[in-house]
């Protein structure tokens, strides 16, 4: 199915947010996930199954002034 991750279309097998994060090799500690403009707390990543057309933002804090 197609989902949009950080503005880019991606084809993924049905999975949870936790699975997607792991499959990308991202360290969960620093990651902030927004799905369809809703912030998804890390405790919920296991429980939420991605659906076709979901718009995900994978964000992290960086240096800034």
């Amino acid at each position: 199915m197609e989902i949009i991750v950080n503005g880019q279309e991606e084809t993924v097998a049905p999975c949870t947010i936790a699975h997607l994060v792991a499959s990308k090799g991202l360290a969960p500690g620093a990651l902030v996930v927004e799905c369809n403009r809703q912030i998804i707390k890390q405790e919920q990543w296991q429980a939420i199954e991605l659906k076709a057309g979901d718009r995900l933002e994978l964000l992290s804090f960086v240096g800034g002034g």
Binding site: G25, L59, S60, V62, G64
Partner: peptide, 8 residues
């Protein structure tokens, strides 16, 4: 701090 999309 600032917030940005991750660079995979």
């Amino acid at each position: 701090v600032a917030l940005r999309r991750i660079d995979a």
